[in-house]
Design a protein around this nucleic acid. Sequence first.
DNA 1: GTAGCGCATATTGGATCCGATATACAATAT
DNA 2: ATATTGTATATCGGATCCAATATGCGCTAC
Lengths: 226, 226
Amino acid sequence: MALTGVDVSQRASASDIVFEALRRAIITGEMKDGDPLRQDAIARLFNTSRIPVREALTMLEQQGLVQTRRYKGAVVTGLSVDDADEIFDFRYLVEAHVIRAAVPRMTPGLLAEAGAICEALAVERDPQPWGDLNRAFHATLLGASGLSFHLAALGNAMDRLDRYVRAQLLLTEGHERSNTEHRAILAACAAGDADGAADLTVAHIHGAHQSLRAHLDGIKAGFGTG
Amino acid sequence: MALTGVDVSQRASASDIVFEALRRAIITGEMKDGDPLRQDAIARLFNTSRIPVREALTMLEQQGLVQTRRYKGAVVTGLSVDDADEIFDFRYLVEAHVIRAAVPRMTPGLLAEAGAICEALAVERDPQPWGDLNRAFHATLLGASGLSFHLAALGNAMDRLDRYVRAQLLLTEGHERSNTEHRAILAACAAGDADGAADLTVAHIHGAHQSLRAHLDGIKAGFGTG
DNA sequence: GTAGCGCATATTGGATCCGATATACAATAT
DNA sequence: ATATTGTATATCGGATCCAATATGCGCTAC
């Protein structure tokens, strides 16, 4: 029988769906720091009961995206400037390590894939899809390392920073610089220059970090102490 | 009124209690790789319903300590040798960074505290409390850094490795070497030698890593590919 | 008029119940 | 005898229900 099957047991559970939707709403900035997450409201929104919602909230709490206080509910976690600095430091350290490990393992196919994303980034104007493509670009390159533990930790770091980076990019038009840097990183990877790619990656993150800091100093306020 | 209060709203929920108990059972090796975690059985054990158990299992899954398959239940996650190598690499990288940041922030009081744990380690023969003290020693020193995100990631890395390290220590009597290395690390910290402490820490982790590899190569089997 | 108390309501945490799925075993047909 | 199918049981995911706690408002006492 020539029937292609799908593993139906891998379908997402209700908790997974709610989790992904909430996670996305938080990292894109759709939900702001301190916004409360009411179990009832979310359950109605997804046409489910509160049980899957609570499991989604516990997942988000483990990831540090929301904070829960007993009998008071969950709110979106805010980052202090110090917190953001620390997580950027983490990225400098780990992302350099991972890209170094990834470069020698990149196949032509993977480089082509990353190149395609890079091109898509260059013409994308909408901030939301741009942010998604940006993550996809880095995930593709870093993924070649096969270092799943490092990648999970980095993914969490990005999740915690993403909404601030996106908000800042939206205002400062840093897309152009980002795009040029992406091309440079990709070129180094294609050339098999692991150290170069690592340096460029660190510089790339540094740029985002500095822009964010400037932006925050500028508006002065914001950034709940979480 | 001179009455010191405690924030009663911070009492652990049932989920937290179950989570901590299961986490401990897993990281100490009390539960073996692949052991199933039956919701009913655990609920009865803690005299609660399955709801808090499920939330605990969700947390454990987020930490990578158990794996859940829909409608089939959760089992203790096993590490392949490659997985273990990767997590050790993560520790080399991050723990060196954190200890470097921690040294200049260590107070005499904190050093005294670490010293006390170090002494306790020297006379402790039981493997389980020795493992707990070992974690406490490193947590005390690293904690001085105040780098909460790094510390959380390192804690998770330790959680994933702990049972293997404990099992290996149990057989190879690596306690003595560990104790000497602890004293050296502590001395470097007390001397304010951040780079020295970092080097010694890396060497310390390296020792554990090599012992574990040797041990695994020796017994050959074990380590489900989980 | 104001500080403090008590009740009403909203919201969360946990228990119980029900439907869905997996697994093991028995029955049956070839 | 073996392979297939049906069924019984165990276990899980989710819904509903109840208890515990927080919050807001009105009332009372001074």
